[in-house]
Design a protein around this nucleic acid. Structure first.
Lengths: 193, 193, 193, 193
DNA sequence: CATGAATGAGTTTTCATTCAT
DNA sequence: TATGAATGAAAACTCATTCAT
C-alpha cells in the first residue's frame, strides 16, 4: 500500500495522484487507505518519511553503524568516508529514482515539513559535522567553517541527485556524483591557481 | 499580471494557486488572463521562463556580455569568474526568493520542461564549458572532465539555492554560497590529505 | 433556484437533500448554486430566512402595517387581532406546507440560528407584547405576565402548525388553529370551574 | 448503550451522529450495535420509543395508573389534572433536555413514524379525550370539540417544550409551562372581553 | 477586447454496513 | 456472540475553462 502510493505519487505528483488510483492499484478499498493514513497529505508524508528511512538504512549499511564507522574513518580517513557516503546516496537514488520525485514534491508542497533527504536530518548533519571536525583536527581537512561545510556537502549531493535523476539521465547519477564529489573534495582549481 | 502570478504561484504552489485570485490581485478579469496565456499551465511556464530571464540578466549584468566577460576572465582568471557567477546567482535568489519556489515547482510539476534555472540552459552550460576548458588550458583548473565539472558546478549552485532559501534561512544564501563555492573551487581536503 | 431548494429541502430534509438534485431541478449547474450561496448550509439558511419573510409578509398583509394595525385593534379589540394573526399563520402554512418542514429542519439542525418562525423574531414578539399590554390596560385581557403570555401564544401557534401539518393532516390546519386559539383566548374551563 | 446513543443523537443529530462514536462511548464494538439494532435508523427509533416510554412513566408516576387517576380526577377535577399532566411533562423535559432533541429529530427526519411525544400516542390521546369528555359532562369544561381540544392541549405542550428547551432557556421550561397552561385553561381574555 | 457568471468534471472525504475471525 | 478492519457508495465542494455580453 505504501509502495503503491510511492509509485503513484512519484509518477503523478502529489496533486495529480488520485487516492482512488492508489487504492485500486494496491488492491484495497479507498476507505482502507483513509483508515490507515487519515488523509492524502498524511499518506504522502508517510511516504516521505519512509523514503528517508530507506536512504538512511542504505547508507548506514554501506558505512556501518557507530563503531564500524569510527573504525572506517580511522582506516581510510574522513575524506574517503565523505566520498563513500555521497556515493552511497548516488547508488540509492539511481536504484530508486521514484524517491527523488517524492523528495522534490515534499520540498515543493510541504516545504520540508518532514525531512525527505538524508541531509535535512539533524542526526545526519551532526554526524557529518563530527566527521569534518575530526578531519580538521587531524589535518586531513582544511580549516573551514564546519557548519557551512556540512551545508555545502549536503547541497552538492542534493543538487546532483535532483539534476542527475531528471528523465533521461537516471542511469548516470553514480558517475555524476563521482565527478562532483571529487571536485568538491580536491578542488576545481589547479596547482598554479 | 505576470508579477502577480509569480507572487501567487510562489506562495501557493502551482495547484493551490487559484487563477481567480491571480486575476483579482492583478486587477484584471479572469478571462483576460486566459486571453493572454491560454491556460494555467502556460501562465506558469511563462513565469518560469521569465524567472530564468531575470537571473540571466542579473548575472550578465554582473559578469558582462561576451567581450566584457572575456576581458574579465583575462583579468582575474576563470576561477574568480566561476565564483563571481555563483555569487551573482546567490545574490539574485536571496533578493527574489519567490523565484526559487517557482523553480522548484517547475521541476516538481513539469520536470524541467522549461529550464527555470540558469544551469539548465544550454547556452549557459556552453559558456561554463568554455570557461572551464580555457581554465584547464591555462593551467588554472585541474584536468577534469569538462562536462561533468559543469554539472557539478551547476548542482552545487542549485542545491545551495534550494536549501538556502528554505523558510528561515532566506537571508543567508549569499554567505552559504560563498562557503560552498570556496570549498568547491579549492577543495575540502587539507594539504596533507 | 431558491424555490427549487425549498421544495427539495422540504421533501428530503437538509442532509438527504443532494445539492446536485437541487441544481438539476433548478436547471442550473451545481457550481452556480455554490457561487450564489457558498455552501449547502448557507443555501438552507437562505431558505429559512426567506420562509420567515414570506409568513411575515402574509400576516402583515392580513393585519396591516402599523397604522392599519392600530386602527384594527381599536375597531375589533386585541383579542380579535390575536386571533386574526394566528389564523393568518394557519392559512399561510396550510397553503405552503413545505415551509413548515423547513422550519422544523432549521430547529433540528441549526437550533434556531436563524429565526424560521414568526414568533422567534424579536420584532414580532415586541408587537405581540405591545398588543397584550394594551389589552390588559383596556381590561380586555387578564392581568397576566406579558412576556410569558407571548411565549404561550407563540408556543401554541408553533405546536399547532407543526402537528397540524404532519402528513395527512395538512388540509386541516386552519380548522385546528381555530379551535386551539379559541380555547387559548377564552379558556378551556367552564363557568363553574 | 441506548443511553449513550441518546446522548450522542441529542448532541449531534441523527445524521451527524457517528455510529462508531456511539459504539466507542458505550464501550462496545460497532458490530455489536448493529447486531442489536439492525441499522442506524432502528437504533434511533429505539431511542425515540424509549424516550416516549420515559415521559409516559414519569407522567404516570405523577398522576397515577388508571384507578388512582380516576380517584384524582374525582378529587381535584379534570382541569387540575390537565394542569398536572402538563406540568409533569415540563418537569420531565427540563430534567432530560436531550429527549427534546430526539423528539425534534424524530419529527424532522422520520415525520412521526414512531410517536416520540406523549401527545402523539393514541393511548394518551384517548385518555385526554376521556378526561375532557368527563369534564364537559361535569360542567367543568366548556362545550368544546373534544378531539380538537385534545389537539390544542397537545400542541401547546409540544410548542412549550420545544421552544422552552432552546439553548439558554432550558432551566425555565417549568415556569413557561405554568403560565402557558394557566392561560390555556382559564383563557387570556378578561371578564369584560 | 475585456469580462465574469455559469459550468461540471474531478477529487477528497465520510461513514453506514458487512463479515471473517 | 462480539468485534472492528475493510469497504465503496454517496456527496460536498473546487476551480479551470468557456463564452455571451
Amino acid at each position: 500500500m505504501l509502495e503503491t502510493a510511492l509509485r503513484i505519487f512519484a509518477r503523478d505528483g502529489f496533486h495529480n495522484a488520485d487516492v482512488q488510483v492508489i487504492a485500486d492499484e494496491a488492491g484495497v478499498g479507498k476507505g482502507t487507505v483513509y483508515r490507515h493514513f487519515g488523509n492524502k497529505q498524511e499518506l504522502f508524508l508517510a511516504n516521505s518519511a519512509h523514503c528517508m528511512q530507506m536512504v538512511d538504512a542504505f547508507v548506514r549499511n554501506r558505512v556501518g553503524d557507530e563503531e564500524k564507522a569510527a573504525k572506517l574513518i580511522a582506516e581510510v580517513g574522513p575524506i574517503a568516508v565523505l566520498k563513500k557516503i555521497a556515493m552511497a546516496c548516488a547508488e540509492f537514488y539511481q536504484k530508486y529514482p521514484e524517491t527523488v520525485e517524492i523528495m522534490i514534491y515534499e520540498r515543493a508542497e510541504f516545504r520540508g515539513s518532514v525531512p525527505a533527504h538524508l541531509m535535512f536530518r539533524s542526526e545526519t548533519r551532526n554526524g557529518i559535522d563530527e566527521l569534518i571536525k575530526a578531519g580538521i583536527a587531524a589535518g586531513a581537512i582544511r580549516h573551514v567553517n564546519v557548519n557551512e561545510a556540512t551545508n555545502a556537502y549536503g547541497d552538492l549531493i542534493f543538487g546532483s541527485v535532483i539534476n542527475g535523476c531528471l528523465a533521461g539521465a537516471k542511469a548516470k547519477l553514480v558517475r555524476r556524483m563521482e565527478h562532483a564529489i571529487d571536485i568538491f573534495l580536491n578542488g576545481l582549481a589547479g596547482d598554479q591557481a
